[in-house]
């Protein structure tokens, strides 16, 4: 998705002089053409995430639409207070674009894993939290929200899903509605595994690319069903619970650091978020639902 991020921003910047890119020493080479074309609007400022967010607030204060881009845990968990105060509280609508979602940097270990970002950021007033699952979704959401006036978090992944989902900011997508008694809800790149897991199972399937504001209307449509949330990060389950009195179960993350390396696929398998494990969990839930009925 990083290349798509660059392509979309380059195109937008050609017609919007208010776009400025601020890099935390990541994607440097990717943005060299942008820097050559717009030398005053692209800065690799260094490894200082807190300052980058606050500097972006200063750029916003004078009418710019900055994109601050660096590695997910450092620009969200480390810089939470800068996002909270200098963007949200001060009402400056910078764009934060992270890379290294969840376990994308599996091989780097737990210091580089990032799964609390969306859960934390969705608590901040005015914050928009977006988890595009594919390049196309990213392109759509950037174009829609980069100048929304609110701080917006775009969570990029190097392992997007292969499906074509026509997303829209703030709206969920019903990918399957067979009138089943069980509805699977998921978000972002893990959709690939979820689709594979529930291909022929009697479930409805709802997909989100916006975590905040969550599409409460679409959740309400399935409130009479058992809702099964499958997600490889925190945030979606909490957002779904904005709709009260649902019957929800979740297949998510364990309460422990993932101390293995390898690839995102290895980690997902280890924590039961590979297609086979998801399917097993869904089948057990379906059986329990049938027995209960």
């Amino acid at each position: 998705m990083r290349k798509q991020f660059k392509d979309t921003v380059v195109e937008l910047a050609d017609r919007d002089e208010r776009i400025v890119v601020v890099l935390g020493d990541i994607s440097h080479f990717l943005f060299i053409p942008f820097q050559e074309k717009h030398p005053t609007r692209c800065y690799n400022m260094g490894i200082c995430e807190n300052a980058l967010v606050s500097i972006a607030a200063g750029l916003c204060s004078q009418g710019f639409h900055p994109f601050v881009h660096t590695i997910a845990p450092f620009i969200t968990e480390r810089s939470l207070e800068q996002i909270k105060l200098d963007l949200c509280y001060n009402r400056f609508g910078a764009n934060i674009v992270s890379t290294g979602a969840s376990f994308d940097y599996a091989w780097d270990g737990a210091t580089h894993h990032c799964y609390t970002d969306m859960a934390i950021l969705r608590l901040l007033p005015r914050m928009e939290v977006l988890q595009p699952g594919s390049k196309t979704e990213l392109d759509t959401l950037i174009r829609s929200q980069y100048n929304s006036g609110n701080p917006t978090y775009f969570r990029l992944s190097d392992f997007g899903h292969p499906h074509d989902v026509p997303v829209k900011f703030g709206k969920g997508n019903i990918l399957k509605n067979s009138g089943a008694k069980v509805t699977v809800m998921t978000a972002g790149p893990i959709l690939g595994n979820v689709m594979e897991a529930c291909a022929d199972l009697p479930v409805n399937l709802v997909y989100f690319s916006t975590i905040k504001p969550i599409d409460k209307e679409i959740i309400e449509r399935f409130r009479h069903t058992q809702i099964l949330v499958v997600h490889d990060a925190f945030g979606l389950l909490e957002a779904i619970h904005e709709v009260p009195d649902l019957r929800v179960s979740c297949l998510g993350l364990p309460d422990q650091f993932c101390v293995w390396y390898g690839t995102v696929h290895d980690i997902r398998k280890m924590i039961s978020l590979d297609p086979g494990s998801i399917r097993n969990w869904l089948q057990k839930k379906l059986a329990a639902t049938e027995n209960h009925c």
């Binding site: 400025v20 005053t40 609007r41 800065y43 807190n50 300052a51 606050s54 500097i55 972006a56 607030a57 200063g58 750029l59 916003c60 204060s61 004078q62 009418g63 710019f64 900055p66 800068q82 200098d86 001060n90």
Partner: peptide, 12 residues
Amino acid sequence: AVAVGMALALRI
């Protein structure tokens, strides 16, 4: 830090 961003904005 926000002041740095303001100054950069004005320079741009």
